[in-house]
Computed example of a mutant assay.
Amino acid sequence: MKACVIHAAKDVRLDTRDEAPLADGEARLSFAYGGVCGSDIHYVSHGRVGDSVVRDPMTLGHEFSATVAEVHPEVTGLSPGTKVAVNPALPCGGCAFCREGRTNLCTNMRFMGSAARRPHQHGGFAERPVVAASQCIPLPEDADLRHVAMAEPYAVALHAAALAGDLSGRIVLITGAGVIGQLLAVAARRAGAAEIVMADVVPAALDRSRELGADNVLNSGDPREVTAFLSEPRIDVAFEASGAPKAFDLCIEALRPAGTLLQVGFLPPAAPITMAKLLTRELRILGTYRFVDEFAEAVRQIVDDEVDLRPIISADMTLNDPNAVFRTAQDKVNTLKVMVHF
């Protein structure tokens, strides 16, 4: 089968790989659609995401939908031809965090398309990936598999919004107008936010944010706009989705006393950030990582037509040329979510 494989930084290929035999509890899928994530882009650009370093060839991809092709004889509840959403997380179920229900913090997590462990956990960007049957959520026959492939990043946004607490009537700032930023806006709006301000340094990204429903936008690369915005700190909740230290600082400056900052994007190691107002304004800062049961909720909202995330998809491409896919995905001026297929 064909698979999109990262070998090292700037070395991504369409390889041919042998299909693995099915073990007890597993299902073989027929890949439908997959979304290129920021972590996939980091692996291709830098050969790593934070402390997760590519040391061996690894199939990329953790945002995808599929159709069941084959199941192990002991598997029940799935059958060939069933459309499925695939949860890329496979927690161990036995560590202290799993026992507490905080499976996103599992100390033995196997997450698809991740180099955090060795051997690496292969991802789903393959013609016939094998997953645990428990990772599959069966879908109605008429489910839009392209739309369902948005469930994983939307689950990240739903988890962050849940950690923020009650957003009803709140003024929300989101820094980073990429895919996660836009999905955070959807999640915050559904949670009752009264006003959503989207900040970014790319004017084209801000124009898209207006079209996608942000109430106000802020060009955080324009000192005059920033000075005016910060003249009266009024933000109740800030979601930092860019991973840029200057965006973190902007959130701190913009938050009113007793406000909350959710760090969603990966900050670089030893990031130079300013924390003085953390003390004087009694701010609350929380890290937010992946999701728990929000994945199933994201799938439900998509399948039940409670949200329409399709406007965030800006390109559909074949994986026959992975380098072209990642060139497009890295173009933050013209591109949001790149959806891939075979």
Rank of each mutant, 00 (worst) to 15 (best):
Val12Leu: 15
Thr16Tyr: 07
Asp24Trp: 03
Phe31Ile: 13
Ala32Leu: 11
Tyr33Asp: 07
Gly34Glu: 11
Val36Trp: 03
Gly38Trp: 14
His46Val: 13
Val49Asn: 13
Asp51Thr: 11
Ser52Asn: 14
Glu70Gln: 15
Val71Gly: 08
Val71Ile: 14
Val75Asn: 08
Pro80Cys: 07
Glu100Cys: 02
Glu100Phe: 01
Gly101Gln: 02
Leu105Ile: 00
Thr107Ser: 11
Gly113Leu: 07
Gln121Leu: 02
Phe125His: 15
Ser134Tyr: 00
Ile137Phe: 10
Pro140Met: 05
Glu141Gly: 14
Ala143Val: 12
Arg146Pro: 01
Val172Leu: 07
Gly181Val: 10
Ala188Trp: 10
Asp200Met: 07
Arg208Phe: 09
Ser209Met: 01
Gly213Asn: 05
Gly213Tyr: 05
Leu230Asp: 08
Pro233Cys: 02
Ile235Gln: 07
Ala241Pro: 08
Ser242Ile: 06
Gly243Ile: 05
Pro245Asp: 07
Lys246Cys: 00
Thr260Val: 11
Leu278Gln: 03
Arg281Pro: 00
Arg284Thr: 14
Arg290Asn: 03
Val292Ile: 01
Asp293Trp: 01
Val299Arg: 13
Val303Lys: 05
Val303Gly: 08
Asp305Ile: 02
Val307Ser: 05
Ile312Thr: 12
Ile312Gln: 04
Ile313Tyr: 00
Leu319Trp: 15
Phe326Leu: 06
